[in-house]
Design a protein around this nucleic acid. Structure first.
Length: 587
RNA sequence: GCCCUUGUAGUGAAAUGGAUAUCACAACGGUCUUCGGAACCGUUAUUGCGGGUUCGAAUCCUGCCGGGGGCACCA
């Protein structure tokens, strides 16, 4: 199943689009051409052509064997809507272009000011439950740039689903057991801990731990050391009490302190946390109970032979008797559905696990019909450096905390000296601006595509960037503050004669597109659509700002422009919220 | 080898099968006695190659070429 199937209903939320579609369908009926027809109603790229364009005549041209222009004209003649449509134009090769009345957009602006933070969000009568699993760090390895992408993408998806009216459960499934944690434990045991290690800064501590992992990964090639590490691994799985397993627990505690600080910094609050260690017993049970059915023994291990399903072969229990990640993913799925009775689970991981999850899902659906169409995997692309994957076992990964620090530092230098913000304000502002930059950058890429990480260019504060959006918001807010407006509703009557210039209208019309964008970004799992929308919105606001003075304008213009400014600020804030980006009042 | 994915200005990206393929960065030039210049306006340059489907293809199909990833005890 694909996720689109889950969101089949109400994918069009744009009132004008629905309305026009209905009018066109009616016109076709009147002409006796066709009863039902699939056609596009879109926004022309060139705005002067109109607000909406229908390609229906071109779709019909072939089956009717008629000139599309003729058909378009015939249809256009039959369409009328005195309240909504200003004029209809037919253009080659057969587009029917609709120009809407400005009053429609002005009404929409009033709607924004009335609904405020609710504008562009939807409610469902019986909200379906969606779990989003994302983040998935390892406790015994540093949180790196890939985790950062996972965390930020997952947060955005959770916000998008929630905005569309679904009940969302944000879940973290973290790796606190398995070979990589045993490697780290062995590495840490190689030298005495620094005396005051427990009091170290949690991020500095984590770097030290990560170094131990890198060391162990290097030494793992040595057969003798591999045996030592495997022993530690077995002891951890069997919950033995040894010096190594106690150290393993300590490292876990330090790591979790580091991780919860990172997630807090990113603005992520999980509803549920699943440690990998807590599903491993159940994992073994599931595998053993299904030998002969789904699983088979092979070379001492228990495997799933995917050949018959056109998939690869995966190991579920090692010849040492430990459950692998694959087995644990099965147990996790059962646990999730037991805990929450889900309508949909979405597991977010990087693209490398795509084929693997095909097998997991196939197995789950075979094990229990309740998973049918309800367990989905969505992959996101790599963050590459110089076009190559960075391996954390080589110590080459880019640490999440380093990126945050770097972004934070740059943001701080951008705050103009003449702004006499106090130290706390400066700190808070630069943190929010830096996060806006990072979140926007990562989310503005298509979900499944790779991102090239370039330290020099990665954190951008100009042009197509998070801070640019925030800056536009700050400008809008600044005008509103200075106007001392108490009651925006009172400004609304001025709308009917105000907002005539090009840039005012461009901004006004763009605001009305927000609900449809928010819905599309949800259905298509595409936060980058929100980024594109936001950037265009900010640009239009800045053009308006540069050409239309608000506070010094005539009373009518001033009132209308204040309403427009307030609408822009509101939609900027709502759309930023979908990306998990907080606004600032000054910067 | 098999499978998945990707290829768009110098660089990084966008574009529901639609009309003249957008942006940003970089380079060059302009706007201002700032409702906050992290801004606005302008100039230059782009769909890997070959077939096909379609009224219409960056987008769908297909072949080739290049990048990334996966394919047994690691997550």
């Amino acid at each position: 199943m694909e996720i689109k199937d889950f969101f089949q209903e109400n994918t069009t939320v744009d009132f004008a689009e629905k309305h026009l579609r209905g009018l066109v369908a009616e016109a076709i009926k009147k002409l006796g051409i066709a009863s039902a027809l699939d056609f596009m109603l879109e926004h022309p790229a060139e705005e002067t052509r109109g607000d909406y364009a229908a390609n229906v005549a071109m779709v019909l041209a072939r089956q009717l064997k008629k000139n599309p222009l003729e058909i378009a004209n015939a249809i256009a003649d039959k369409v009328s809507s005195p309240t909504l449509i200003e004029k209809i134009e037919v253009r080659a090769p057969g587009f029917i272009n609709f120009h809407l009345k400005q009053a429609y957009y002005k009404k929409e602006l009033a709607e924004i000011l009335a609904q405020k933070e609710k504008y562009g969000s939807f409610e469902l009568n019986e909200p379906k439950k969606i779990m989003v699993e994302f983040g998935q760090p390892n406790t015994h390895k540093a949180f790196h740039i890939g985790h950062l992408r996972s965390a930020l993408s997952g947060l955005a998806l959770a916000k998008l689903f929630k905005n569309s009216g679904y009940a969302v459960i944000k879940t973290n499934y973290y790796g606190d057991i398995g070979m990589q944690t045993s490697k780290t434990t062995w590495g840490m045991a190689q030298k005495a801990l620094p005396e005051d290690f427990d009091n170290w800064d949690k991020h500095k501590r984590m770097k030290y731990i990560d170094d131990a992992y890198v060391l162990a990964s290097e030494k793992f090639a040595d057969k003798k050391i591999e045996i030592e590490i495997r022993k530690i691994n077995r002891d951890i799985y069997n919950q033995k009490d040894t010096a190594a397993t106690r150290l393993h627990q300590k490292i876990k505690k330090w790591s979790l302190e580091h991780l919860s600080a990172v997630f807090a910094d990113l603005g992520i609050v999980y509803d549920k946390q699943y440690p990998e260690s807590e599903v491993s017993e159940k994992a073994i049970k599931i595998v053993e109970e299904n030998i002969g059915g789904i699983f088979e023994k092979s070379e001492g291990a228990i495997i799933y032979n995917g050949e018959k399903d056109g998939l690869a072969t995966w190991v579920f229990r090692t010849s040492e008797g430990n459950p692998t990640y694959s087995a644990k993913d099965l147990a996790l799925a059962f646990q999730k559905f037991e805990d929450y009775d889900l309508d949909l689970n979405i597991t977010l991981t990087s693209v490398e696990q795509t084929d693997y999850f095909k097998a997991v899902i196939k197995i789950l659906e075979t094990l229990d019909g309740k998973f049918k169409g309800k367990y989905l995997h969505i992959p996101f692309g790599w963050v590459l450096r110089a076009g190559k994957k960075t391996a954390s076992r080589m110590g080459g990964s880019v640490k999440g905390t380093d990126i945050l620090q770097e972004a934070y530092k740059i943001a701080k230098t951008k705050i103009k000296e003449l702004k006499d913000y106090n130290k706390d304000e400066k700190g808070e502002i630069s943190k929010k601006v830096a996060l806006a930059g990072l979140k926007f950058l990562i989310l503005s890429h298509e979900f499944h595509k790779n991102i090239n990480y370039n330290p020099q260019k990665f954190i951008n504060f100009e042009g197509f960037s998070g801070p640019f959006i925030l800056y536009s918001y700050v400008r809008a807010r600044s005008i509103l503050q200075k106007s001392h407006t108490k009651n925006l509703e009172a400004k609304l009557p001025s709308l009917s004669s105000g907002l005539k210039s090009e840039y005012e209208l461009k901004l006004l019309k763009w605001l009305a597109r927000y609900p449809q964008i928010a819905r599309r970004a949800c259905v298509e799992v595409s936060p980058h659509l929100v980024c594109n929308y936001l950037y265009e919105l900010s640009q239009r606001f800045n053009q308006f700002y540069a050409t239309c003075p608000v506070l010094t304008a005539s009373e009518t213009d001033k009132n209308a422009r204040l309403a427009l400014t307030a609408g822009a600020a509101q939609v900027l804030k709502n759309a930023l919220g979908l990306l998990g980006i907080e606004t600032v009042e000054k910067m």
